[in-house]
Design a protein around this nucleic acid. Structure first.
Lengths: 143, 143
DNA sequence: CTGCAAGTTCAAGCCGACTTGAGGTCAAGC
DNA sequence: GCTTGACCTCAAGTCGGCTTGAACTTGCAG
């Protein structure tokens, strides 16, 4: 297949052109050359970008992903296993939080803090929050 | 009980004094007064902080938490229910990712991208990442 | 040949949640 | 009464992952 330009790559992956340039600068993707000024990318870059997206969604930083992706297409399986275990822990935590929230909804105690179950959950969250910072929120789409 | 100073509150909650001042500035907690310059907090602030921690751990921003906490101790249960549903979705996503990572570890295809199952997962992650920015990572403890 | 949309570079800005540093104030212990 | 050290304020810095803006260059359609 023929190489594609940055706009097409953006269209196919849903990643903004500015982000793609940033990724190239970071070494996560490579352009095969230029047509005039314009970057050209191999169509396989689309797959590379879904791999990158997978990494991001799993909680890797761009630097980590860059490390994993350098060295051909070979990805460190041990690292993946570790990340899977980390995801498992996160899932457990979130499940406990969800249960806590749902209990809070259902609980008939006058104030939430009067419910011993909820207090327990809140204390739990306290310990976790002390150890781990919060997630980023959604960003509003620019107008 | 007697009011406690910021250092004691920090000790009891695991939240740094600087963060506590920040929370007060944002209206998340209130100090009952001063002893000289030093802030004094009611001991119940400890519980308020675990509530705040719970909110943070569930993915609320400080502003959202402030909104929920203002208006007495009453917390909007509908909002909680919505957040629980959101957590549920997140949990599902993470579970799928974890399965994908584990499959990647086990998969015997020569390159990961040669495995159709993994490609499917990667494409999925691609769509999700396009819609939602990544989470923040752990921060190293300052030396 | 010209106009222009779509690319380019580079530096600077933004987000949230804090942390850090400089310089100041105060209550308590000696 | 003086030192000390815990607290104070305020401005600025940090982090990652982009986005934005200004000023510029191209290839291609007309």
């Amino acid at each position: 297949m023929f190489d594609i330009d940055i706009a097409e790559l953006a269209r196919r992956t849903g990643v903004k052109a500015s982000a793609l340039r940033y990724y190239e600068e970071k070494g996560l993707i490579v352009s095969t050359g230029r047509h005039g000024l314009k970057r050209l990318f191999a169509p396989s870059t689309v797959e590379r970008l879904s791999l990158i997206a997978l990494g991001r969604a799993s909680g890797f930083s761009l630097d980590e992903i860059a490390g994993m992706l350098s060295g051909g297409a070979a990805i460190d399986r041990g690292q993946l296993r570790a990340k899977a275990a980390e995801l498992d822990r996160r899932i457990d935590d979130l499940a406990r939080l969800r249960d806590g929230l749902l209990h809070a909804v259902a609980c008939t105690a006058p104030g939430l803090m009067d419910c011993p179950r909820f207090r327990g959950i809140a204390r739990l969250a306290g310990r976790q929050a002390a150890a781990q910072p919060a997630r980023r929120r959604f960003r509003a789409e620019p107008a």
